[in-house]
Nucleic acid binder design. Structure first.
Lengths: 244, 244
DNA sequence: CGGTAAATTGACCTGGGTCAATAAATGTGG
DNA sequence: CCACATTTATTGACCCAGGTCAATTTACCG
């Protein structure tokens, strides 16, 4: 059985016991390939499964009645997706494979079992959810209170930070893998204006672009322009219960 | 000891056992009054406490380096606040008392104990967090993809729905208790434009206003205008572990 | 009853949207 | 590997929703 990417991710928060890792590994045993563009979960459809992404990238979004789309989250290997199935029978979001993917699905009842049998895992999962929640409040502030250029800058750095979590060799350059329309749908802009802002950031010497590859030439400046904070570092989980 | 408002809130999700209620009640035993305007938690300050609001209303927000403010959440009686202390030593958000308040504080280690000893409470708390998370994604879509009028409409209905959770007698009329600047800071608008939108909604016959009191004259229409969905209903927690 | 915060309104401005035309990149079947 | 089709990116011209600034008015408060 392959190792658990979700366990790798949680290990960033706190060291796991072999027993705990075994439990998480079992969660990822049901792999399923997904073709690029195919829907994993459709908004308003009934679903009681949760997922761990093992390969590729997925996008979670909502569609408003006027047809506009808001991308809620980009899902990377090791991330959990579809957690809303824990509280809603009918999914509040759509999840689509943005590249060819491999996902592991498991029933939400598994979460109940883990919480009962492995309280420490429950605590780490709760912590992981908090990190994502704070990252989302940052995006809320970005959409509510910052300029188009700031939003693009913040997103570019955040995406690098997210990708780097599952690829520690990544430095200041990465393949975006998103269309400018998708970028716009994530940060509340049109594709046209995203294009203009990317060009400006390039002219400002903050980034470079070549065939879909982004290089962050001045991370400090980009973070400042975008009011960006990396929420995946400086964590403190010292309150966690000890291993069994 | 007073009954636990947090337990009341969680009871909306699933019936709690007397034992579980006792645990939550103990969590709220350390009451503290807060004067209107006083800070409970300051962004970047160290804090290892979490809070349950017992009376009043609090506001959680972030300040950007350019001085602009994004309100992240309005906190009502029975809500938990400051959960980010579970992962960050230095708070990512400020929490201020918007009216005179009474809060109950408890150390984050309490959460570890509860998770270990009462897995079902851990599960309900995880579920409650998910409901808040989805409500926040709705606000993200509101800021990213809807007009000023839509955002105001959505916020007015959401506030009513939130207040109604701890006051079941509330119907279509309530005291806002927010300045137009605060409304603007929550939905990414200026106070001036919030004022214009309120007037328009009034002219459209969707709301009425008298001395700080809002009446939702046509909830259906307001929800439609704001693309609003009540996320506190239609929950499904049938996967939860059984009581001990 | 002054004094301050909040609400309201008008005049004007601008960041980002809209529309449209090309160009470049990516795929696809043969 | 090639010709064609479909996305995607890019750029210019123009427009408007919402911001800014400023002046009153109204509400709240000691």
């Amino acid at each position: 059985m392959p190792q658990s990417l979700f366990a790798d991710r949680l290990s960033d928060l706190i060291a796991l016991t072999p027993d705990e890792i075994a439990v998480l590994t079992a969660m990822e045993s049901q792999e399923r390939p997904l073709r690029r563009g195919s829907l994993l979960v459709r908004e308003k459809d009934s679903s009681s499964d949760l997922f761990i992404l093992r390969q590729g990238m997925m996008i979670s979004y909502v569609l408003l009645d006027d047809g506009s789309r808001q991308i809620l989250r980009f899902v990377f290997p090791g991330d959990m997706a579809g957690i809303s199935a824990l509280v809603y029978r009918d999914s509040p979001e759509t999840i689509v494979a943005s590249t060819d993917c491999v996902v592991a699905a498991f029933d939400r009842a598994t979460i109940a079992t883990i919480i009962s049998d492995h309280p420490r895992l429950a605590a780490v999962m709760l912590a992981a959810v908090q990190v994502e929640r704070v990252a989302m409040t940052d995006r809320l502030a970005s959409l509510g209170r910052t300029s188009a250029k700031a939003r693009v800058a913040a997103l570019l750095v955040e995406l690098r930070d997210r990708m780097r979590r599952s690829d520690r060799t990544m430095t200041n350059s990465y393949t975006l893998g998103l269309t400018q329309e998708e970028i716009g749908d994530a940060i509340g802009l049109t594709a046209v204006h995203v294009n203009r802002m990317l060009r400006q950031l390039e002219e400002d010497g903050l980034i470079a672009r070549h065939q879909g590859r982004i290089t962050l030439l001045d991370e400090q400046a980009l973070s400042a322009v975008g009011f960006y904070t990396n929420r995946f570092i400086n964590l403190d989980l010292s309150w966690m219960p000890p291993p069994r």
